[in-house]
Design a protein around this nucleic acid. Structure first.
Length: 595
RNA sequence: GCCGACGUAGCUCAACGGUAGAGCAGCUGAUUUGUAAUCAGCAGGUUGCGGGUUCGAGUCCCACCGUCGGCUCCA
């Protein structure tokens, strides 16, 4: 084994040669935080000798370690654990790697009473060489590498306590997970904590209340209420969506929310999705509230005969779906129990699959660019609970891969994450905190056409089976709305802003002029307000600023006499006076450009 | 659903087991104001819901509902 290596910030022991790592590289940060996780585990074992160790990896922005305690610990215990960690860091314990045989390792962890470690060892391949890392009175099964001593952790904080199932499986024992983060300096840690504070200010739940966009109530957990200002944004999003889809050759439909059980049996949802569905009875028959829009779409397609000349048919629907989600999973507008999907089903000939999937990819990219979102592409393959033959799945997956490769799109493969009826391409948006959210998805489906016996008449005069794509662009309107709120920090661009212009007369004698300006703005189809309260301009401006109104028109003697408007912009401040016509032209330009 | 935390006025937050308060918002009045908060007054609560302990519960205990951080799931 090579001796410890030194670099400005991190010293790492490696057994495979000399490698320098520093915290700024992703790998260096992982090593650093993984060592912090070991220190956490050591501290916990000192305070709770009976605690059984789970796993303790580094994650994005930090680390965690899972433990099984005799009795659950509470968040208050974290402070005591932090103290103990500081002791361990202060002692500058050297961290040593120990290679051992499987028998040695089993004996070691048996003696230490670590059932989860034994389970991990049992699952390691027979020829794997086992290693442990040791620091003072603590030893842990670990591939490494690690820092050379515990004193190198300069700044850390335990950030949370949560339940987590052993190996992520809800059938397993629930362990307690302690989250933390670590940085090479207190300044960096503080900067990270400040970033979290900033993120809280853009939280869509907070802004949604402050800007009066939407609300959630105990009377309907997970069923959001949209307020007038939220509805304005919603309408702009759907208007834009309709124009783009018409242009791209889509037709729009609307299907019922409640449909008979027989339909859900036919579609396979009864067997594959029942635990997420809501039910009701009508005239002594079972009905279900739709969790997806596809069966309704299938019925529309099937309601008449199709020629191969009719295909592809791109049938879109802003469909309201309801899904029973676990109560603990609900979160603002991003995880709800009822949401609107900007759905579409494309019915096509087998040879149209590639161009159609390509067309959807282009549309998704266009939408995301308008809003300035970065995204990541993922391909999800056959899940355990799947319908259809393996060959069908392989064929469908191969087509999706080909489309992505032909376009040089980088993607990640999620094995076993597909829908039960077909593989899919997902688009994950990165939000302002670096978290990713699934929004757009393109799902290939060879199942529904079979289940619903969909056909078209081909050139040979015979009936053939069309292929179906399910796709969404926004994904869930509610989730996309939430992401937009946080993305813009509530300061929506003019085309989306619930109020685009606040007209602010300085005194009552300017009210008639202000009312005339206001009227003209309404006639120009802008969303404007007239603030004719008996308040000082400063007060009215502050209020408009707080509500994040992009433009304010301040009107006093100077403007009234010259027939001008003094323009104040939300970010840029006082822009000076111009004619109302010029202002309207400017605003029209900004709105049209969606800037 | 599971683990942990939390739930007081519309919002943000106070209140050693001993009479529930403040700021902002709201309402009323005065102020007629030039680019982020004028002043004064008034009103606002069965402390999430239901039990229990206690002479006495916002405070302690139990159950339920909801919210938050995670796990799981997914748009």
């Amino acid at each position: 084994m090579k001796e410890a290596l030194f670099l400005s910030q991190i010293r790492v022991r490696l057994d495979d040669g000399v490698t320098f790592l520093d915290f700024d590289s992703p790998r260096g940060a992982r090593v650093y935080r993984h060592s912090a996780a070991h220190i956490l585990a050591q501290a916990v074992k000192r305070l709770y000798p009976n605690a059984r160790l789970g796993i303790g990896p580094a994650i994005e922005n930090g680390f965690y370690y899972d433990f099984e305690f005799d009795a659950p610990i509470s968040a208050a215990a974290l402070e005591r654990i932090e103290q103990e960690m500081k002791e361990i860091i202060g002692a500058r314990l050297p961290i040593r790697r120990r290679e051992m045989s499987r028998e040695e390792a089993v004996a070691l962890f048996q003696e230490k009473g670590e059932p989860y470690k034994l389970e991990l060892i049992a699952d390691l391949p027979a020829d794997a060489s086992l290693s442990c890392y040791e620091q003072g009175d603590f030893i842990d099964l670990c591939a490494g590498p690690h820092l050379s001593d515990t004193g190198q952790i300069k700044a850390f904080k335990l950030t949370g306590l949560a339940g987590a199932y052993w190996r992520g499986d809800e059938r397993n024992q629930m362990l307690q997970r302690i989250y933390g983060t670590a940085y090479p300096s207190q300044e960096q840690l503080d900067a990270y904590l400040r970033l979290l504070e900033e993120a809280k200010k853009r939280d869509h739940r907070k802004l949604g209340r402050e800007l009066d966009l939407f609300s959630l109530h105990d009377e309907g957990p997970g069923f959001p209420f949209l307020h007038p200002h939220g509805m304005v944004i919603w309408q702009e999003l759907t208007d834009f969506w309709r124009r783009e889809h018409r242009r791209a050759g889509y037709e729009e439909i609307k299907t019922p929310i409640i449909l008979n059980r027989s339909l859900w049996e036919q579609s396979g949802h009864w067997d594959h999705f029942r635990e997420n569905m809501y039910f009701t009875r009508i005239d002594d028959q079972d009905y279900a509230v739709k969790p997806m829009n596809c069966p309704g779409g299938m019925l529309v397609f099937r309601s008449r005969m199709h020629s191969y000349r009719d295909l592809p048919r791109r049938i879109a629907e802003m469909g309201l779906v309801h899904r029973h989600e676990l109560s603990g999973a609900l979160h603002g507008l991003t995880r709800v129990r009822s949401f609107t999907q900007d759905d579409a089903h494309i019915f096509m000939l087998p040879e149209q699959v590639e161009p159609e999937v390509g067309g959807v990819i282009e549309m998704v990219d266009r939408f995301y660019r308008i809003f300035g979102f970065d995204y990541r592409v993922e391909l999800s393959t056959r899940p355990e609970k799947a319908m259809g033959s393996l060959e069908m799945w392989e064929k469908a997956t191969a087509i999706l891969e080909k489309v992505l490769r032909d376009r040089n799109i980088a993607y990640r493969v999620n094995h076993g994450e597909g829908a039960f009826y077909g593989p899919k391409i997902d688009f994950h948006l990165m939000d302002c905190l670096g978290r990713s959210w699934q929004c757009s998805t393109i799902q290939l489906d060879f199942q529904m056409p079979e289940k619903f016996d969909l056909t078209y008449i081909a050139e040979d005069g015979q009936k053939h089976r069309p292929v179906v794509i399910h796709r969404v662009v926004y994904g869930s309107m509610e989730r996309f709305f939430a992401l937009l709120i946080e993305h813009y920090g509530g300061a929506f661009p003019a085309w989306l802003a619930p109020v685009q212009v606040a007209v602010i007369p300085i005194t009552e004698r300017h009210h008639p002029y202000a009312a005339a300006v206001f009227e003209k703005l309404l006639n120009a189809s802008f969303r404007a307000t007239l603030d004719d309260r008996k308040e000082k301009v400063g007060y009215k401006i502050r209020e408009a600023q707080v509500k994040k109104v992009p433009y304010m028109l301040v009107l006093g003697d100077r403007e009234a006499e010259a027939g001008l408007v003094a323009v104040r912009h939300r970010e840029e401040g006082d822009r000076g006076a111009c004619s109302l016509a010029d202002f309207i032209a400017h605003l029209n330009e900004i709105v049209a450009a969606k800037k």
